[in-house]
Simulated assay, not measured.
Amino acid sequence: MPQQDLERLKKEYQRRADPAYYKNTYSFSNPAYVFMLQSQERALLSCLKEFGFQSLNQSKILEIGCGRGGVMLGFLRYGATASNLSGIDILLDRVVLAKQTLPESKISCADGQFLPYESAQFDILLQFTAFSSILDPQIKRNMASEMLRVLKPDGVILWYDFWWNPTNPQTAGIKPKEIKILFSNCVFKLHKITLAPPIARLIVPISWALAVILESLKVFNSHYLAIITKQ
């Protein structure tokens, strides 16, 4: 049931809000986290350049599931204008934190199935590991439909999510076939990136160079960066 999955999702995000969870997993003192973040950033900037986004200062950008605003903050570094950044999240406490981080941006507590925007509003839509946290297929279909609705005809969706995570039953990896079903009648470019976190946490503290080599093989990479455009 969609509503049951939303309640489960809220509880799971509240669990992840534990300071100890963030301190151990998403800390810049954690070399594996830094490795994964830098790898993701290089791939993302390369895709933006490829699709003609040399400058982001005029681009209207929306993130689905913005959390505390970390990804949006990254886009400020890339040249986006704070007032052109929007984000939605289902948890009010995360929205409050994101607004403190990005006071000039438009951040709302909202369900991704019912985006509070008019159609064809955004140049870039961001989805970073929000869909894999949803288990109900109807919710995912509804969210994908809403994302396409608010995207400009010449806009792009930047999708970053994992296809495989056997250690967390609260998530479901999404493979390219499912992405293409969710966003039917669209054009896709997919890059398999990010050395699987369990491997990165093991290898990076020992040898950064070895981690780079393993990631370049793509066999051990756990995420897809997909660039989705309308037909």
Score class of each variant (00 low, 15 high):
Glu12Gly: 01
Ser86Arg: 04
Ala80Met: 08
Asn185Phe: 04
Pro31Cys: 06
Phe51Thr: 12
Tyr224Val: 05
Ile213Leu: 15
Arg16Thr: 07
Pro116Lys: 11
Ile61Leu: 04
Asp136Ile: 03
Pro103Asn: 12
Ser86Glu: 03
Val71Phe: 00
Ile193Phe: 05
Lys175Glu: 11
Ile181Asp: 15
Arg201Asn: 15
Ala209Pro: 01
Ser216Asp: 06
Ser132Asp: 03
Lys192Val: 01
Pro198Glu: 11
Leu85Phe: 06
Met147Trp: 06
Leu195Phe: 04
Met36Gln: 13
Ser132Thr: 15
Leu9Cys: 04
Ala211Phe: 06
Ser86Gly: 06
Ala226Phe: 02
Ile124Val: 08
Ile227Phe: 03
Thr129Gly: 02
Asn168His: 09
Ala80Val: 08
Gly173Tyr: 07
Val204Trp: 09
Asn142Gly: 15
Ala144Gln: 06
Ala211Ile: 05
Leu158Pro: 02
Cys47Met: 13
Arg68Ala: 01
Pro176Val: 05
Arg77Leu: 06
Gln170Val: 05
Ala110Pro: 01
Leu91Val: 14
Glu215Phe: 01
Leu91Ala: 09
Ile61Trp: 01
Ser39Leu: 04
Cys186Tyr: 04
Cys66Leu: 05
Leu148Cys: 09
Met36Leu: 15
Leu85Asp: 02
Thr81Trp: 08
Leu210Val: 07
Tyr33Thr: 08
Arg15His: 11
Ile181Ala: 15
Ala80Ile: 06
Phe114Arg: 13
Thr229Lys: 13
Leu125Tyr: 00
Ser105Trp: 01
Leu190Cys: 10
Lys177Tyr: 12
Ile61Phe: 01
Leu56Ala: 10
Gln38Met: 13
Ser59Pro: 13
Asn84Cys: 09
Ser55Ile: 05
Val212Tyr: 05
Asp89Tyr: 03
Leu6Arg: 07
Ser145Lys: 15
Thr101Pro: 03
Leu37His: 07
Leu73Arg: 10
Thr171Pro: 02
Glu104Val: 06
Ile181Ser: 15
Ile199Arg: 07
Glu63His: 03
Phe183Cys: 07
Asn30Gly: 08
Lys218Ala: 08
Pro116Asp: 13
Asn142Arg: 15
Gln121Asp: 13
Leu148Lys: 14
Ala144Leu: 09
Asp5Ser: 11
Ile213Tyr: 12
Arg94Ile: 00
Val204Ser: 10
Pro31Ile: 07
Asp5Leu: 10
Asp111Arg: 09
Ser133Tyr: 00
Gln3Ala: 14
Ile228Asn: 01
Leu102Ala: 07
Leu214Asn: 10
Ser119Gln: 13
Glu7Arg: 04
Leu92Asn: 12
Val34Asp: 06
Glu104Thr: 09
Leu148Glu: 03
Leu126Phe: 02
Phe114Gln: 14
Leu195Val: 03
Leu125His: 00
Val71Gln: 00
Asn185Thr: 07
Gln121Met: 15
Gly79Gln: 07
Ser86Thr: 10
Leu37Gln: 13
Glu63Ile: 01
Leu151Val: 11
Phe53Ile: 09
Lys218Met: 09
Asp154Lys: 15
